[in-house]
Design a protein around this nucleic acid. Structure first.
Lengths: 105, 105
DNA sequence: AAAGAATATTCCTGTCAAGGAATACTCTTT
DNA sequence: AAAGAGTATTCCTTGACAGGAATATTCTTT
């Protein structure tokens, strides 16, 4: 089953923004905060959540922390979606057959 | 950008369970509640959230409400992931070049 | 019409997560 | 050594959300 920590980490708008920003490459906390108009502490906090969810990893360079995306959680999401790709073409609903089942009670 | 209502709807474990259950076909509220060992009211509440997020749709048959998955949100998720598929093969990190940028300040 | 089944809604309570403000920590520069 | 830049952490307050219990609503059966 899909891991809900990944989902809830991404469900927060600011964190989703961070992820979208990092899609273009690794960035420093300060830069992230600037670009998204966040105060630095909030940026750090959100990054911490993303870090603990494994969505992001960090590399320390002197004073700065450079954050970048990790591919794994996205692959997981992708794999999870796989079990739905089948269904969404042939329609999820096999409604008619379910209605028949109901009749038989 | 990805819609966070989809993500937060799926981020709740019981709701994710419901979605996984519905993957196999449409189901009645009572059945969902039974299978997931939820009390009926909580099942209804979670289904309401999924409904408002457009993850699920419902068809009334007499007394019962049959819920089934809608493909759209999953497609959206899939499309969104697309912008990451590129990156996660070539590595997200173009770390070296970013480090060079930092030098130039 | 009354009783019962299936589902939705309301009210209450407790928990948790997010933002603000202040501060601590670490590394660099002078 | 002192000052400053970059980042993390803590404390506080507030709002959102999930579960429990009770009740309302709608349809069916007798």
């Amino acid at each position: 089953m899909m891991d809900t920590t990944t989902l809830s980490a991404l469900a927060e708008p600011n964190r989703l923004h961070i992820v979208e920003l990092l899609r273009e490459g690794p960035l420093t906390v300060g830069v992230i905060a600037d670009r998204l108009r966040l105060r630095q502490p909030q940026a750090s906090k959100h990054l911490r959540v993303l870090l603990e969810a494994g969505i992001v990893e960090l590399q320390a360079v002197a004073n700065r922390r450079i954050y970048k995306l990790r591919p794994e959680p996205f692959k997981e999401l992708d794999d999870w979606l796989d079990s739905y790709r089948r269904g969404w073409n042939e329609r999820f609903d096999d409604l008619d057959s379910y209605l028949s089942e109901l009749q038989q009670e």
